[in-house]
Design a protein around this nucleic acid. Structure first.
Length: 279
DNA sequence: CTCCTGTCCTGCCGGC
DNA sequence: TGCCGGCAGGACAGGA
């Protein structure tokens, strides 16, 4: 499910409920996801107040008053459901972690494949956690630019598609938005990373920003109703140009509908692109 | 170092 | 209808 825009959307939804709230109970419904839940997480978090939430790459951070930050990654299939106080809720299959606030709001983490991850930071702070070691710049932040991308690509001979999935180069992109950004920039996914010009890197960074911002806007706009809040909303709202569009004609192609979106494998994962627009 | 493959896990979809 | 293979939004380990 989640790439940067979906994680941002989920984080904003959680923020509405958790910001300033006090955690009453932490319910672990199994001992682990991909790795065990942090030792003594229940004891550490219960009674703590949430001071702020933020997103770094595809991680959601929940900061507490007097406790280490809670770090959540949604993996491939992680979803967050927000249940308001007045609503009855029976835990569903794959509900693995439920946080309840003293106000009665519940934050339910559901993850069928259990590729998600939950950590607690230590006293060194969340930035020091190994998950963030060597991580590249935020694609929507000031430290990411065409020049920065160009510089990072110089030592990379691998295809630009796989390079953009490398979180050390830029942090937060996933398979969908890499395909979409390369399409918008008109760059073939199999181009060697170090063959891109400065101008192409400039264009690519702009397209990355645009596609992410559009997707966030589409997902965020649906969050007003908490009962509908779950991680799938962003994808339902956003129309992809090439992702999962194999055989369809791309939306703004100059081929007159004669060329269709192709699908190839790169690094074991599907890439979708328009051979007319991206060459 | 970089690059490539396999692996974790469940659900879903298409083909036979 | 049922079964089976392939594939899925991610990240990491291990080997070349």
């Amino acid at each position: 499910m989640p790439e940067l825009p979906e994680v941002e959307t989920v984080m904003r939804g959680m923020e509405k409920v958790l910001q300033g709230a006090q955690i009453a109970t932490v319910e672990q419904r199994r001992p682990d996801l991909r790795v065990p839940f942090p030792p003594r997480m229940k004891e550490i978090l219960e009674g703590r107040s949430v001071t702020a939430l933020e997103r770094r790459a595809k991680y959601i951070l929940v900061h507490f008053n007097g406790a280490p930050s809670f770090i959540l990654h949604l993996g491939m299939s992680g979803r967050v459901l927000l249940v308001p106080p007045a609503q009855d809720y029976q835990p569903q299959k794959h509900d693995h972690l439920i946080l309840t606030t003293t106000a009665g709001d519940r934050v339910v983490y559901n993850d069928a494949r259990r590729f998600g991850m939950v950590y607690l930071a230590d006293e060194a702070g969340w930035e020091a956690h190994t998950a963030f070691a060597g991580m590249g710049p935020e694609p929507l932040g000031n430290e990411f630019s065409g020049a920065v991308l160009f510089e990072a690509l110089q030592k990379k001979a691998s295809p630009i598609k796989t390079t953009l999935l490398d979180q050390r180069v830029v942090a937060g992109l996933g398979n969908i938005y890499v395909c979409e950004a390369l399409y918008m920039a008109g760059i073939h996914p199999q181009r060697a990373s170090n063959s891109l010009s400065v101008e192409e890197c400039e264009s690519l960074t702009q397209k990355i920003r645009i596609v992410l911002e559009r997707a966030i806007a589409a997902g965020g706009s649906t969050l007003k109703d908490h009962r509908k809040t779950d991680g799938t909303l962003g994808y339902f709202q956003y129309n992809f140009a090439v992702y999962d569009k194999e055989g369809k004609s791309c939306p703004d192609c100059d081929c007159g509908g004669k060329v269709s979106v192709e699908r190839i494998k790169q690094g074991g994962r599907s890439t979708f692109f328009c051979p007319q627009k991206q060459n």
